[in-house]
Design a protein around this nucleic acid. Structure first.
Lengths: 238, 238
DNA sequence: CGGCCGGTTGACTAATTTCAAGCAGGGTGG
DNA sequence: CCACCCTGCTTGAAATTAGTCAACCGGCCG
């Protein structure tokens, strides 16, 4: 990581300070939690490698998947308001995370206005990402939702110099459906439809995008999604 | 306002400083904008009286209503990430807002860690409020959505010492439908259903809740909604 | 070798949207 | 001051989408 994780606006000196605060290299196996809903809020976390989903358990006992987090993305920001995490975060595969203990971090922000600003921008990004999801859930059809998710993951991959056209969906179809407000069956049908029309290929969890144009059209987007789950990305915390 | 707007954790002295920064008493008529999507981000705003809706215009030209803001609630937080507002905010009735110019505010937060914390908590509240909306859109039926909205507004009214059982819906049915991911017709039908079953009465835009229990049941909530659109509330900025 | 879980597929059902018509209040112009 | 119109709202019937129920498939693990 190292080089690409340089905080853009900080001086060499300040980086070292931040570096002291961040706990790196906590490794989780599939199914292990980063934090649980209701736990006292102590830290925010950045994904280094792997994939994490966040979810809430509602009154009636069922689950709402709130997001998927890829390397560089920051989670746990919802815990600040109540001093307890508003959601749970669980690894979907072998995953490594950085922990940023909030109390120490706060002391640091008071010395480093740039860092404070960066953190507030992270939270703002999380807000706009959620607004994108709200629009998707409120206005889009099943086909558009699935297409949008594929494009979003593709783009997020591209942003971290991985293949935009070929990737692994580490989350289950159930999680995808839950996240997109659809049933598993509907997700499966939409994916099958895309396969049949030669827009993608699927081999278990491996996805290959054959026709990005067609996907964009299916998602009803004029351009690459400048939003959905452009989760809070921090190059300076991972 | 005065008394109830005291910032909880600040000293008398500090309040004065904050007071200098905040521009009070900008009054908007129905249909006037607080800010427009894409405008350069300069300030966050708190509603003092009236009601504001925020919305985005999507590629295809149609609108997504993202939220309704009542007195004490803070909007514009989504503008921080890009330095431009990610949504537009428009008054739904005669409305008074406070403007908090962000540049000055930021200087202040550097002197007052408590204020910095308060602001970050506001953003976190906005995140959790949006998560509630995501769950509603993803998992709830039309009836549950409408019931939840009514209860939420009722509760928010109660929080500011107004009647929880009788209030005015200043937003149109179209806006409600848009916000809840439903068509106008469906919203209208659900409201009519509640009227027929004597759960509420409607007289134009005036709503009276006759049977809160039944509404809670219709919303499938065990208790008062501890969430949906518990928008970022700041007692210290209005 | 089963059994099980996750995923796919098909037929049917239920919910919401769409289309269409009608109603009512508020504002405008004669 | 009244008639008219426009907009927002309501209601009904038809159409469509996604959900439900059920069967089945296939890898993976014990």
């Amino acid at each position: 990581m190292g080089k690409i994780c340089l905080p853009i606006a900080l001086e060499q000196n300040d980086i070292a300070k931040l570096d002291e605060v961040v706990k790196r290299n906590r490794v989780l196996h599939k199914g292990e939690h980063v934090f649980h809903m209701g736990d006292p809020f102590t830290s925010v976390f950045a994904v280094r490698s792997g994939c994490v989903k966040t979810y809430q358990v509602m009154d009636n006992g069922d689950e709402q998947v709130n997001g998927f987090y890829f390397p560089g993305e920051v989670m746990g920001l919802d815990g600040l308001s109540n001093q307890t995490y508003a959601s749970s975060a669980v690894a979907l595969e072998v995953t490594s995370v950085c922990e940023i203990p909030f109390a120490k971090f706060r002391q640091l922000t008071q010395q480093l206005p740039e860092l404070q600003m960066h953190f507030m921008q992270l939270m703002s990004q999380e807000i706009t990402a959620e607004q994108q999801l709200i629009t998707l859930l409120s206005k889009k059809t099943a086909e558009q939702r699935v297409a949008t998710l594929l494009l979003t993951i593709s783009e997020r991959n591209a942003n971290r110099n991985m293949s935009a056209s070929r990737f692994r969906l580490s989350m289950s179809r159930i999680d995808i459906g839950n996240y997109l407000g659809l049933t598993v069956e509907t997700v499966s049908r939409m994916l099958s439809r895309f396969v049949k029309s030669k827009v993608i290929t699927i081999e278990r969890k491996e996805i290959q995008i054959l026709d990005q144009e067609a996907l964009l059209q299916a998602a009803s987007l004029d351009h690459l999604p400048n939003g959905l789950s452009h989760r809070a990305i921090s190059r300076c915390m991972c």
